[in-house]
Simulated assay, not measured.
Amino acid sequence: MAMDAHEIETLIRSALPDAQVEITDLAGDGDHYAATIVSEAFRGKSRVQQHQMVYAALQGNMGGVLHALALHTKVPEKA
Rank of each mutant, 00 (worst) to 15 (best):
M1D: 13
A2P: 15
M3I: 12
D4Y: 03
A5I: 03
H6N: 07
E9H: 09
T10G: 05
T10Y: 10
L11I: 02
L11A: 11
S14L: 05
S14N: 05
A15F: 13
A19H: 07
V21S: 00
E22Q: 15
T24Y: 03
D25Q: 04
L26Y: 03
L26Q: 04
L26S: 04
G28S: 07
D31N: 14
H32F: 14
Y33A: 04
A34K: 05
A35H: 01
T36Y: 04
I37V: 15
V38Q: 01
V38M: 00
S39I: 04
E40Y: 01
A41F: 01
A41H: 12
F42W: 06
R43K: 14
K45V: 00
K45D: 01
Q49G: 06
Q50I: 01
M53T: 08
Y55F: 13
Y55E: 05
Y55V: 12
L58Q: 10
L58T: 10
G60P: 04
G60I: 08
N61I: 02
M62H: 09
G63P: 03
G63S: 00
G64P: 00
G64W: 00
V65W: 00
L66R: 01
A68N: 08
A70N: 12
A70K: 06
L71T: 06
L71R: 10
T73R: 04
K74E: 14
P76F: 07
E77N: 10
K78E: 12
A79Y: 06
A79R: 13
